[in-house]
Design a protein around this nucleic acid. Structure first.
Lengths: 153, 153
DNA sequence: TCACTCAGTTCGTTTTCCAAACCCGCTAAG
DNA sequence: CTTAGCGGGTTTGGAAAACGAACTGAGTGA
């Protein structure tokens, strides 16, 4: 990881790319916010989960909220920046549904308020057209980026 | 990870969620496809990279293509299913740009064919409306899912 | 012959992960 | 008052993964 290219993808993954971190986000987004629930639903070792939660709280992606003193008890909630990671979860889920559950046995379906099952689609916020890889051009802004081949895709 | 909930997010992460895997996909999508380029641009240990490449090839996300016999040399290219992970990279990048480079010093800018900088936005493929967390409802299809709190978000 | 490239492999060490056991403050039951 | 249980962790000791540096091996070019 040293000497790597400067990159927001790498930076984001350095924060939430460790094992279990995004699953923690899945759980807290779905409403499971207590330590023992997280352990059960994710299946992570308790000490590892402790480390991940601390990191996510330090990064401002989660907040630790006391829901009872005597005994002191805490739960973890997504902050607004944490909720902004939900699109990452949706695109990961869509890919898994398409390529790992092609038989249609999807473990979970998300319904959009419009009444349809959510199939997340990425569009350009400006022109609202669907984004296809070959419509993209990469413009490095920092040194270390000598793009060799074609643009994105 | 044992006893965890069935979930396409977890399944996808099991495949491409290890350290460096998504960065490999970034590189091959941008055109850096040779082993030494990947080592340099990603900054990964060579043996780890070897393992990741093997896993991604086995999963059908990359393909290993001979670009020279004598000496035998290979490069790695994204398959169509690999390219379908680009939206994941875009959403990760957008989050990092927003939250980790709020000062505007983005390491890289992607230009959409419409002429604007790409700001990826997720919409419902059906109704084309922007997706907001509170417009989503989770419908577990498999056992192991007793959603406790509110829907997604 | 010597130096160099590329695509890995091997080595010995450090880090991280893991499951199970334990701890602590507290409540509720017997 | 003793014991059982819950929630939210910490501790422990061993197994696995990551790490950087060195090395290999086929081939090129000077």
């Amino acid at each position: 990881m040293k000497d790597a290219r400067p990159c927001s993808i790498a930076d984001t993954l350095a924060l939430v790319g460790e094992k279990y971190s995004l699953l923690v986000l899945r759980e807290v987004s779905l409403g499971a916010r207590r330590f023992d629930q997280l352990v059960r639903n994710i299946g992570a070792p308790r000490d590892v989960l402790t480390a991940r939660l601390k990191r996510l709280v330090d990064a401002g992606v989660l907040e630790k909220v006391e829901y009872s003193d005597r005994p002191k008890r805490y739960e973890y909630r997504p902050t607004s920046s944490g909720l902004e990671l939900v699109p990452v979860l949706m695109t990961l889920m869509a890919w898994g549904d398409r390529h790992l559950h092609a038989d249609g046995d999807r473990p979970m379906v998300i319904e959009h308020i419009c009444g349809h099952e959510l199939v997340p689609q990425i569009v350009c916020a400006e022109c609202r057209e669907d984004v296809h890889q070959h419509d993209l051009t990469a413009h490095p802004q920092a040194p270390g980026w000598t793009v060799t081949g074609p643009a994105v895709a």
